[in-house]
Design a protein around this nucleic acid. Structure first.
Lengths: 401, 401
DNA sequence: GTGTCGGCCGTCTGCCGACAA
DNA sequence: TTGTCGGCAGACGGCCGACAC
């Protein structure tokens, strides 16, 4: 993935706004392309970084698992509490694939203790824009034979109104993509029965973005009365090719060494998060982590729900049962909360869903009130006792609000 | 750069031939695309690896210099003598850009001493194929309006002979690219004056490879009477975009950590060499290194020649004068031979050529016989004495043949 | 010897409503 | 409501020699 323009996050406090040489990606469009489940932590907030999850993303991007022969980084714990200094949204110049660049600074030992005492920094879920639609392209949409058939409700909700006095009603639409490129389309309402179509300009867009049937386009009509245009490619299997800049082994080592060095010196480091390549978010708000790990009771046999994205870019819940709680990789990452929950899924199509999830990804179903709680329910981990409960912090030190 | 097919080197001894799931890239075509100055060390031979040069390649690929805040790797010397276990040629699936993957194993201390005693492993220069031609594409060649105008001598030398009894003489050519894809062209000899043209099939090739005026194509007619077809894109400025898999800092750290770990444990590691992205080769035959460093007398003021590639894929010599000998980066890479020679170039177009080169890249002009020499001339480095002369080896231990 | 052009023909692009799912 | 098709007109692709540098 090669990056073009970039922007700072436009959400959150303590935001670092950078202007000048770099163009700003439209945050709304970025989130729409990333999908409804992707949320970025706020700039200035505290987050938990999982090198293990980062390693999984690199493995997915290089098609190669981390090797067992790697050097050890004893100074690198399985989760690292960090200050999030900067978030920059990017989009691949070739494919429009979105990713986020984050600058993290591991907290010092003293600050880690304080981390549990500060007012909760609530992460807001990525709010999808209201005036938008997303359509999966048909064979006719991508064929050179014709244009793009706009679903009626979508056109009426998202596009500016046509003058229905004209025959046929038509207008020119100008939409901008993630790179702020302008695309012009002729929008016309014709045919028998009547339908909305994009004709002139559509095929140029399809061939420029190399869209094929099965890919999706999304149009947003924002508050500034601008039309935004994004794409989301179908997940085609086996499209990932190894990069030739660095061997995958060196990449894995680099990710670990960079995090370990930053942790040892409390200095900043930079990571890329690829929402549509990574199996899970590996930088999550500290508050979300604490809530899930220390204030939620889970146990084997417990039922839970979890959100997934649908084909139509909306969300639905799948249900399952917790079948176990244990380290995903006891040898390399002991005492890690990353994907520590083994689960079984209710539906038979469960083959597509992970057999292991992290605590903060699921919604346990319980008859008790879950939170806020005056008596926080503590997770009993199945690990041998005597381990430092949380990087040397005693359980009693932990509190929220 | 994303890799597709690959092959083991077809030159050199101790060659590991891998067959089955991986297709073999044609070595002849790979070298033709890489250019006349690129040579790969033999599998099984001993080489010198320069992490500093590797770092330069990564910097060129990520558009970012190595950061000074990196952790130190005291176990990583500026040059590492390695056994070369494997060489695999690759080509980018999107752009056809060539690169080579090498598996290196640092020698143990004992083996390092032996390294200077073994019979010389002479590296052979990359021999360009004899029956080939390379043409830079004109506006007419890449226009949709017509086909490809084949230079007359090239067509007569490289293409199979036409039957000139026909009117006009024509034939179908089938050429294979680096990925072993087949391309068919109609080759015809017509017009007034008569000329060789590729018509039907040419435009498909141009658009598939996304060739533009200024790019080059090369045709090879090999010993097996096969027609091979490669491309070499014009060096367009600012085409390098940062990857989003890993931050450039992490990549730099990864390269250093991987090499340091391999050096400390005498285990294998893997690197990618991108001939057309990297400023210089950073894995060179040990013999070439020893010859240049220990058996060549250079001094400030000395005249030298150095090979460069021309537009037409051939080589020419440029002349210059040595203006200094010193460490390129005394802080991070003290006592490194990497680009230790400061030079001035004779011609005014010297702005394009590096101000620093390595000893083994240049041909010092001297009135003495240079080598072989019964009395090896030793380089007097301007560094403070007392440093280990060569990883703890005494000068007298060194010998060639 | 070869890069670019005008001429010319054929194919494909692309806009239209019909029709059916 | 919308995916695909046949019909049709015009644009562009693509093969040719002319011509000039």
């Amino acid at each position: 993935m090669r990056l073009s323009s970039s922007s700072s996050s436009t959400t959150g406090f303590n935001q670092v706004t950078r202007e000048g040489d770099k163009k700003c990606l439209n945050s709304e469009l970025w989130h729409a392309c990333a999908g409804p489940l992707v949320s970025l932590p706020h700039v200035g907030s505290r987050v938990v970084y999982f090198p293990q999850g980062h390693s999984e993303q690199v493995a997915a991007s290089t098609n190669k698992e981390a090797d067992a022969h790697f050097p050890n980084y004893p100074s690198l714990p399985p989760q690292l509490i960090c200050q999030l200094h900067n978030v920059t949204m990017h989009a691949d110049v070739e494919t429009d694939e979105v990713c986020a660049q984050m600058t993290l600074q591991p907290l010092s030992q003293e600050d880690q203790k304080d981390a549990y005492l500060v007012p909760a920094e609530l992460g807001t879920a990525s709010k999808q824009p209201s005036n938008y639609f997303c359509k999966t392209l048909t064979a006719s949409d991508t064929s050179t034979h014709g244009g793009f058939s706009v679903p009626r409700r979508a056109a009426e909700k998202v596009f500016p109104p046509l003058d229905y006095a004209q025959t046929p009603p038509a207008q020119e639409l100008i939409a901008r993509d993630l790179h702020d490129n302008e695309w012009k389309f002729r929008h016309i309402f014709r045919g028998q029965p009547k339908r909305h179509l994009l004709t002139t300009g559509w095929s140029v867009f399809v061939s420029a973005k190399r869209l094929v049937a099965g890919d999706s386009v999304l149009f947003i009509w924002n508050e500034k009365n601008q039309l935004l245009l994004g794409i989301r490619r179908a997940t085609r299997p086996q499209t990932v090719m190894p990069s030739s800049v660095l061997s995958s082994d060196s990449m894995h080592i680099g990710l670990l060494a960079a995090a370990a060095h930053a942790a040892a010196t409390n200095s900043r480091f930079t990571i890329f998060y690829n929402p549509r390549a990574s199996p899970s978010e590996f930088v999550i708000p500290l508050v979300k982590y604490i809530k899930a790990v220390y204030h939620t009771r889970v146990s084997v046999g417990m039922r839970f729900r979890m959100l997934f994205e649908t084909e139509e870019s909306s969300v639905r819940r799948y249900m399952g049962t917790i079948t176990g709680i244990s380290d995903l990789d006891p040898a390399r990452w002991p005492n890690s909360y990353w994907r520590s929950v083994k689960v079984g899924w209710d539906e038979s199509t469960a083959g597509e869903r992970q057999p292991r999830v992290s605590l903060w990804e699921i919604e346990p179903l319980t008859t008790f009130p879950m939170y806020p709680s005056a008596f926080p329910l503590r997770l009993k981990r199945p690990w041998p006792s005597g381990l430092p409960s949380f990087h040397g912090l005693r359980d009693d030190d932990l509190s929220i609000n």
